[in-house]
């Protein structure tokens, strides 16, 4: 079921931050993991991901580093900064409260 674009757009930043809190990743890798974990429900495109990554980098939440894979191919890895890690935690807490509130309305409980 295709999701509303605005709904998807509002969660990209949160998901990117949460994924990068696990480890440093490059853009294509992030898209792949999101697709895998949502079982293809979130079909992110380059135009969805990269502007968000660059905006976060510009704000100092992320830093980048080119690293070579075993194959020798170099990729641009994104890594959370300390500031970014704090921001990620805030965003997750915000989502938890928000989704709890929505669930409380929809289902009568915050689950």
């Amino acid at each position: 079921m295709p999701f509303n674009t605005e709904l998807v757009g509002s969660t990209v930043e949160l998901l990117v931050l949460k994924l990068l809190a696990e480890r440093a990743m490059y853009g294509y890798e992030i898209i792949q993991i999101v697709n895998e974990r949502t079982d293809g429900a979130f079909n992110w495109k380059e135009g969805t991901l990269y502007p968000v990554l660059h905006r976060l980098e510009g704000k100092g939440f992320l830093v980048t580093e080119w690293q070579a894979a075993d194959s020798g191919k170099k990729r641009r890895y994104y890594k959370l900064t300390t500031k970014g890690r704090g921001h990620a935690e805030e965003k997750v807490a915000e989502w938890r409260t928000f989704s709890g509130s929505v669930n409380a309305v929809l289902y009568g409980s915050a689950v």
Binding site: K45, E46, G47, Y50, P51, V52, H54, R55, E57, G58
Partner: peptide
């Protein structure tokens, strides 16, 4: 094909990187 329109992407990237 899956990359989509480079022009749309360009606009998004300019917006995202403007401050930087």
């Amino acid at each position: 094909q899956s990359f989509g329109s480079p022009l749309d992407m360009a606009a998004e990237l300019v917006e995202a990187n403007r401050g930087r």
